[in-house]
Design a protein around this nucleic acid. Structure first.
Lengths: 191, 191
DNA sequence: TTGACTATACCGACCGGTTAGTATAGTGGG
DNA sequence: CCCACTATACTAACCGGTCGGTATAGTCAA
């Protein structure tokens, strides 16, 4: 389903490859769409687990943690999204034909933004900006995955993320100097 | 094909909606895949024409031109990619089942990078960086289009682009001051 | 302990309809 | 007459989904 798309993956294929019969299949799933939803949730949960498993999560320095997130994404991305991202694929293919799946994909993106936003907090200026930076990161990932698939080269996922990371690094530089100014104003140690 | 995907769009539908019969269709196209290729090229050419039609193209100031490109993309994006981007959709759905289409999509992305790169030249540092920034822009567009489709809200295309534009603005700021330094060193007018 | 009853898992043939693609007989302008 | 083009009927495979039926295990009253 990830490799060839929703429509091109038949229920018969799914059954024969997973060693179940069609009768069994339709005992557990009312429709093909319902299976799609289950596969989507599985993909989401696996992705969250993989992303959360990174070393960055335990880092104390907030800038180190943010940079560590990108290190981790660059490291696992090419493997995790080797055959694409199911959220992105379903959004492309089913957004206007399956409201159920489209809504779930939107929900998942929201959940991911909420999970990621805290990591961006230290460089966020406005109240909403951490969430916006998290959303921007998801966009870059989705775009990079498409690029990687088009060029048949998963390494593009890492290089796309790396370029975005450079822009984040520039922001970290700004945040640091801004913070230093505040600290200096409070007469605390400049280093 | 854009709205419901390649597989879900049948040749019969295409024929009846465009008022041709199947005999005619298969006189002009050997396979459905070949039509897909033609539709892809049509989408690409229309997109290039729309993007190139912007006022930014004639601007003299290179920074104004770059910012003008983003103004233009934000203005036309929500309409142009209202139902998604065919390059992105095909990359998602057909990358691993139709090598022909996948290759053409990759080619198109390359062509777009080459077309866009000159606009990024003024803020590029290394020799490859203008092309990389252009590619990054395409990634953001593709990601934003997916996000917009998932949330059923084309305005997300503009807001995603705007956020990326802010990062580009930061870079313009850096480039400007760097250039000022050079100018001052050459004893030319600082303003 | 036994036997009637029920719930769940599972099977695979089958259904109507759709798919991409083909075969063939025109048709109409140059 | 010719040939690019059109129309329609057709094929064979495949689609998602249904159906009647079976196997197994648990429950509970007598």
């Amino acid at each position: 389903m990830l490799k060839y798309g929703y429509a091109a993956t038949s229920v018969d294929d799914i059954c024969s490859k997973s060693g179940v019969t069609k009768g069994s299949f339709y005992h557990f799933f009312a429709t093909k769409e319902e299976l799609g939803l289950a596969v989507l949730n599985g993909f989401y949960e696996e992705g969250v687990a993989r992303v959360a498993s990174g070393a960055y999560a335990g880092m104390n320095d907030p800038y180190q943690r943010l940079l560590g997130l990108f290190d981790h994404l660059e490291a696992i991305g090419p493997d995790l999204w080797r055959h694409g991202c199911l959220m992105g694929n379903f959004a492309c293919e089913l957004a206007e034909s399956s409201p159920l799946i489209r809504r779930r994909v939107a929900e998942i993106f929201e959940e991911l933004v909420n999970r990621l936003a805290p990591v961006f907090r230290p460089i966020a200026r406005g109240g909403r900006e951490a969430a916006e930076l998290a959303e921007q990161t998801l966009m870059v990932i989705e775009g990079a995955v498409i690029m990687a698939r088009a060029h048949d080269d998963p390494r593009r996922i890492a290089s796309g993320l790396r370029r975005f990371r450079h822009m984040i690094e520039a922001r970290i530089g700004e945040s640091r100097t801004a913070k230093d100014k505040v600290n200096r104003g409070r007469a605390s140690s400049p280093m």
